[in-house]
Design a protein around this nucleic acid. Structure first.
Lengths: 396, 396
DNA sequence: GACTCTTTGTCCTGTGACTGGAGAAAGTCG
DNA sequence: CGACTTTCTCCAGTCACAGGACAAAGAGTC
């Protein structure tokens, strides 16, 4: 199949494509209700879109008491590739034009091996998805990386946990390899976009999306648009200082939030507690696996282990203090918690909420939901697909 | 003179009005270079604006080698009223349509006396400016208040330092009294708009404006637009906790930034130091006046008083920690420091910079200027005039 | 089955927005 | 005084768009 070549010729067409993406198949009449255009003008633009092949008219809908309508939908063969590169694993998924996940693979990975090795793996995963018959090719790809990105160029800049990636032209290189348009963004921003598109943040305009995985980051959405900051490092809250002259952090500073709470810090603290004999539960888990992860702490906590619960509560308190500051500053309408440690579930959430509701002003917290993301690991890949579709579904 | 009755009929006219406001008088040809319109269309819109009386053509500019151009400018009789209500004083100014301050009055005030008493005073000040011949009437007024505002309605909500104002319909009441359109906003947001219009932030798109006066607040500008948050309390950083279980704050919580550094806290600490005999300089000032203010600390510091310098440094360090967090989170392109305590000058700035540059990631601080505002007390009133002119110079 | 009513989609014409060229007006410069 | 520039105006042609008329295709009613 020939890949998507055309782009919307004007803002009307872009609008229509996004409506079809977000609302599924629609008749011309239904589309007309959602855009501020006359039926005639709308028909013209729909016809032009049909000519380009971006949308198709297939079949007739059931009558609602009158003439049956044509189903207008995005071309069913369109495929987007969503890639979410984490510090220790990578998610690759294929979606259709409506951003529904058709296939999804997760594999372990060490991002420090550098872009060449990582992309080899990612391309192999993409090829696997293609081979399974889910896609004959990709019309676009969105890539998430765990660090700041100069967004317009799609190039990571000074990423602390992936030093070999600094300045690597991710967008250009992958665009060449995949033979389709590519957009690159911070993984946290993609999670925010994913939850906004298909998750808990569907109706939110100004919200924060805190991702606690190997590190901690925060996606910022202002007026429905991701805010990336002047140099692309906005939301980098992992290195906010929570303890003057505190624990040494990998970034070189002392007392960073990430040094106290994150997947990595939690695993380290749990191992220490196990070795020091403060928790039989954790010691048993350590015995079995040789090392511990945040998931092990979740298991121990679920079994009622007091030490594990304490670790979670303490980390949640620290993180909650930072979030409380951000809530005072940013006054969001919603805070979404996501990332690997969401397995810690209600214990974590309770600690976060306590801190935020206690420390921020009532006006800012009065009607502020703090909730877990509902998409889990698919948030990132859906966000990635959304990123590239937003790009492709806008006037050239 | 009849007041401004017309409003721009479309986006083109609004654009032209703002160009004339920000760039001063212009010929049709110069305007044509700045908007994406043909000369013919431009001429039509300019003619329509001339008909409404919003702009006038007065005189011919010097020739630049050809036919002399007509000077198109905003109607010279247009007058905006800018009001900046602080906790302990109020600024009222008149500007022309280009937002140049024609007259400016400052008076002490206690905002806790409530809206009725305050507006009586403000209206008297406005009348005084009118009586001095600067204005025959006002075409619009912008009002800044020291607390959160539900922006669309122009109503303060749950303002901690001015409880009597909660829910008072400021916009409606003043619009009635003044007989012109009124817009209301937080005083910190107005300062940010002022510095953006005519001060250090002229070319900044994403920046923070930290105002340290009786309290501490922060104006947030995203993409050139003020961000107000979900309930209008964005930027309320005075009650971020900087010390767990720390000093009691007026808001009811403990350890808030404002409890450690602000005009009020600084005055209190200085008085304490004077009474405890830790500073002869401050003791002498206290002797003379019976009480101390932030300005007294500035005087003592300028005279080399070690205790005063320490107070400033310590407060600057605390505030710098918070700003460092915000810089990591928001990644601004500029941080402006303003408000009453800017008299503390370089000592304060040095403390702030040290903290921010040490604690935030290099990517976020690499090219980040942290500077004092250059407009001083006029920032607020210029911002207020800008607020209402933005409103009036937009399509109805 | 004839009739009316509803819904959907197409066609056509009139209007207003806009562009770009021609040219007039008003100046400078050699 | 002519050549050239810059500014501004006028005009005709093009394009976007709205809205009405109408055709197509169905449901419901008697």
């Amino acid at each position: 199949m020939r890949r998507m070549t055309a782009r919307p010729a004007n803002a009307h067409q872009a609008r229509l494509l996004r409506l079809l993406r977000d609302g599924g198949p629609n008749s011309r009449a239904q589309l007309g209700d959602q855009v501020d255009l006359s039926r005639s003008k709308l028909a013209v633009e729909v016809d032009r879109l049909l000519e380009t092949g971006l949308v198709v008219a297939d079949g007739l809908a059931a009558s609602r008491g009158g003439r049956r309508s044509h189903n207008i939908r995005l071309a069913p063969g369109l495929r987007f590739l969503g890639v979410d590169i984490g510090a220790t694993s990578v998610d690759v998924a294929v979606t259709n034009a409506e951003l529904e996940v058709l296939g999804h693979i997760n594999q372990p990975l060490d991002v420090r091996e550098g872009p060449v090795a990582v992309f080899e793996q990612v391309l192999a995963m993409a090829a696997k998805l293609k081979a399974s018959g889910l896609a004959e090719g990709f019309d676009g790809a969105g890539i998430g990386v765990p660090g700041p990105v100069r967004f317009p160029e799609g190039v990571p800049v000074a990423p602390p946990i992936m030093p070999g990636w600094d300045g690597f032209p991710v967008r250009e290189a992958l665009s060449q390899e995949l033979g389709c348009p590519v957009m690159v963004d911070n993984d946290v921003n993609l999670m925010a976009m994913g939850e906004q598109h298909a998750g808990v943040a569907r109706s939110a305009r100004d919200f924060l999306c805190v991702k606690i995985g190997t590190g901690i980051g925060c996606g910022i959405v202002v007026g429905g648009e991701v805010y990336r900051g002047t140099t692309g490092s906005a939301g980098d809250i992992g290195h906010i200082q929570v303890e003057p002259d505190g624990r040494q952090c990998a970034c070189g500073n002392k007392g960073c939030l990430e040094a106290y709470f994150s997947g990595a810090a939690l695993a380290r603290d749990a191992e220490e507690a196990a070795r020091e004999g403060r928790s039989d539960e954790l010691a048993a888990l350590l015995e079995g696996a040789g090392k511990l992860s945040a998931a092990d702490v979740a298991v121990a906590a679920a079994a009622g282990d007091a030490t594990a619960l304490d670790l979670i509560r303490e980390g949640g308190n620290r993180t909650g203090q930072v979030i409380a500051s951000l809530v005072s500053f940013f006054n969001p309408g919603l805070v979404v918690i996501g990332g690997g440690v969401t397995g810690l579930g209600h214990t974590l959430l309770a600690a976060l909420r306590t801190q935020v509701y206690r420390q921020s002003l009532p006006l800012a917290t009065g009607n502020l939901p703090i909730v877990l993301g509902e998409l889990g690991p698919t948030a990132g890949v859906i966000g990635a697909a959304r990123l590239i579709s937003d790009h492709l579904f806008s006037p050239a």
